[in-house]
């Protein structure tokens, strides 16, 4: 098959790159997590195209250690959201010892924070409490949800390969004008409750890793923003420098 032919010279290409970001870069830089969706369903062919982008993601040893589950049933999405809200409610009650009358939980909470350092990370804790209080939807009302499971027997790091496939799908969706949001709170459904594994017939070797909400965004949430720069060590000419 023919690939995208480069018709311009390298000098022209460099001149063009200096003027503006490429279309792909723009999709990457303008992608924002969308948390407000229209009720309107996404056309089926667009979801199929998004899954195609995931299918062609690179993976270790080309073992493609993923399983995608598409949920477009509003009742099912509602039921899952309710279950996660219950779990988040319990989590925030146990760990949020800053509430009045909960000072006694301080030591327990601190130990839990250390043992489950990713799940109980304080940064998204406001969101956990909001989901528990049912002020924030799990998938924010998105009509289509893609659940990603990884094959635990995959080469190298199958979780990472699922992340790469997921990012492919997210960027493909945004290039089509859709909105997406990575939602890993849904892990609670498959970790603490045997019910949902049965509903989706998930068994060995598949394990839940993350989920993506897909839908038509309300307003125009995509756009470039400011973000922290990160230190990057740069080794060149037998010298080390740090750039930002």
């Amino acid at each position: 098959m023919e690939s995208v032919a480069r018709k311009e010279s390298k000098a022209d290409l460099v001149e063009r790159l200096k003027k503006d970001f490429t279309e792909t870069e723009k999709v990457i830089l303008e992608r924002r997590s969308v948390r407000l969706y229209k009720d309107e369903q996404v056309p089926e062919f667009m979801v199929r195209r998004i899954l195609e982008a995931g299918r062609f993601a690179p993976s270790a040893g080309n073992c493609q250690p993923w399983k995608f589950v598409v949920v477009r049933d509003p009742d099912l999405i509602y039921e899952m959201t309710e279950d996660v809200a219950d779990a988040c409610g319990i989590f925030s009650k146990i760990v949020n010892y800053t509430r009045p009358g909960r000072e006694g939980l301080r030591t327990f909470s601190k130990i839990m924070t250390r043992l489950r350092k990713h799940d109980l990370h304080p940064v998204p804790f406001a969101a956990v409490s909001l989901i528990g209080d049912r002020k924030l939807g799990l998938w924010h009302g998105a009509p289509t949800v893609i659940l990603i499971f990884y094959d635990t027997r995959g080469v190298g790091c199958p979780e990472l390969d699922c992340g790469i496939a997921g990012q492919n799908m997210v960027l493909a969706a945004h290039s089509m004008g859709l909105g997406t949001c990575w939602v890993s709170f849904s892990k609670l459904l498959f970790e603490y409750n045997p019910k949902w594994k049965k509903v989706f017939s998930i068994s060995y070797p598949f394990k839940f890793i993350t989920s993506i909400a897909v839908g038509w965004p309300v307003g125009e949430p995509d756009g470039m923003i400011s973000r922290q720069t990160h230190a990057v060590d740069w080794y060149e000419g037998q010298k080390k420098s740090t750039i930002y």
């Binding site: 970001f21 830089l29 470039m224 400011s226 973000r227 720069t229 990160h230």
Partner: peptide, 23 residues
């Protein structure tokens, strides 16, 4: 940007900036 201390200390972050072209 947020900056946590202690165990969750934010390390090796610089000032926030919009996307750059570097040209």
């Amino acid at each position: 940007p947020y900056r946590w201390t202690s165990f969750y200390k934010v390390i090796e972050h610089g000032e926030p900036k919009p996307p750059r072209l570097f040209t």
